[in-house]
Design a protein around this nucleic acid. Sequence first.
DNA 1: TTTAGATGGTTACAAATGAAACCACTTTGG
DNA 2: CCAAAGTGGTTTCATTTGTAACCATCTAAA
Lengths: 156, 156
Amino acid sequence: MDILELESFLPYRLYRLADAVSHEFSKIYKDRHGLTRPEWRTLAGLGQHGTMTAKALGEQSAMHKTKVSRAVAELERRRWLTRTPDESDRRVEHLTLTKAGLAAYREMVPLAKAFERELLARLGAEEQTAIVDGVAALEACLGQSVVGANRMSSEG
Amino acid sequence: MDILELESFLPYRLYRLADAVSHEFSKIYKDRHGLTRPEWRTLAGLGQHGTMTAKALGEQSAMHKTKVSRAVAELERRRWLTRTPDESDRRVEHLTLTKAGLAAYREMVPLAKAFERELLARLGAEEQTAIVDGVAALEACLGQSVVGANRMSSEG
DNA sequence: TTTAGATGGTTACAAATGAAACCACTTTGG
DNA sequence: CCAAAGTGGTTTCATTTGTAACCATCTAAA
């Protein structure tokens, strides 16, 4: 009988690994500020780019537009971001972090970087390049049309 | 100002990648039989091991016990598995696939294997070993206590 | 014994999520 | 100019999920 060994099955391993890493990392924004993942990504996007539309946010951080909408609403409620109507297209709003939002972002960036650094630090040199390159390769091949702007991640 | 480049941030990339792969793979069990991921994992676990308890299922496939409970209930409703009370401990039930469940499992195993094979086939030889080894390394270091039996994945 | 905890498993409830409908606006093609 | 289709973004609704409480049973210690 032909069986499948789940523990060795790449999609399963990949998912479980990502889930564990993500869950570990979520402590940084969840325990600290009670943010959800969509909220964290929104904060990260705006911190990185300064000003973005909801649509751009969704594309950059692979989130469904309803998630973006809700995350933006919550961050606005916290007064971590403000909306500015677009001059020429009144459907569009430009989102920008407030001082408070920026402060939170600035506080989290070093923690995020430290997390990534320490995660990789537990690995040997070749192992580090292995994941980084491996992930990059899969991203590239799975590609343009699946990962990234179009897919609109479910995020778990 | 110190910023974080989300697109290069490993936890984010890993999650997005796993999500894309998983979503792609989910077509095999979702489109074909309308299974959810917990249901698929339950099927896979039982197919692989023959008979398991709900607890063992949760440990093997990194699922929260409520997910296992619900998945088992659904597969039972479909008559894809049966429960047999344990002789010596009446809290425990042993789960086994029925003929129908086994048939579905047998049908999916080759598809799953083909999916994995074709996914890897898109990569070069070194790239293949890169992800496989990279994932293994992270699994190992992130380790025993985080990935696997204890974590009880959220699954998305 | 008896009783206080563990343990396998289910259920109730609240929060997060996705699909699809929707609103306001803009663009396109007659 | 006008209707039809497209787009940015929100809301509604049903489903999925996690937490915590829960039930039944088992174990261990007094």
